[in-house]
Amino acid sequence: MRFLAITRAELTILRRNLWIFMATLIMLAFALALSFAGSAPTGTLGVDMLTISVASMTTLSVYLAPLLALMMGFDAIAGDRDRGSLALLLTYPAGRGELLAGKFLAHLAALTIAMVIGFGAAGAIAAWFGGAGAESLLALARLVLTSILLGAVFLVLGYAISALANSTTAAAGLSAGLWLVFVVLFDLALLGAVVMDGDGVFTQSIFPWVMVANPADAFRLWNIAASEGVALSSGMAGAAAALPTWAAPLSLLAWPILGFLLARAAFQKVEP
């Protein structure tokens, strides 16, 4: 398995430049802060503290998972090319798809470590102090899993940007732009459209599908639709109810595959 050679080297790099440590620390700090800050409304909604904590962390993950993923992804190809090490790498028997898969596996492993430790620790503390039921534990597991999936989406989108950009700096800028579009501007634009449309055709039948097409929103919807408690405490039950249950999972599972194919196609055109 030649791509595993790349995975091993990338993991060594991520460990040695403290990337895994820093990402885990960031996840842990934010997750803990949100869990404690968000523990106030427990009594009024009648759900346990872990449920509230998962709802808060879902909102957090929408921002953080893509950000962490893009921070790793943007450098994947442009970095090697700017450094001058890509040409040599490409003369080895491993194909471009294998190189990309090797890096993806390493980056995904790093994200998984950060997510499991960060959300896991916050969840454990919330459960310890405020109690947890079977349903809220399931919601936590779902949050970790979907956060990793969301990270995977933005990893491969980061690779595509890394292959298309002329330099590492440009790749970094484009990644920031991509993050802003998917995580912030997309929702704002949709909100504007819904406000303009009122209760028209767009709001009724088109809006939920456009929304779920965005992986960040699909992530939110998946977590919300699947757990009544989380939906209740995040106030997003309406949009989730308008869609079939498979829509959000399909979107979040299809994006990494489409993104990888896109990155692979863009990588093919790269001349080291």
Partner: peptide, 18 residues
């Protein structure tokens, strides 16, 4: 040029595996 975070041994090992 190679990735600065790897050692010479690790880099060569990676190439050998590839």
């Amino acid at each position: 040029s190679f990735h600065p975070a790897l050692t010479g041994f690790e880099q060569l090992k990676t190439f050998a595996r590839l």
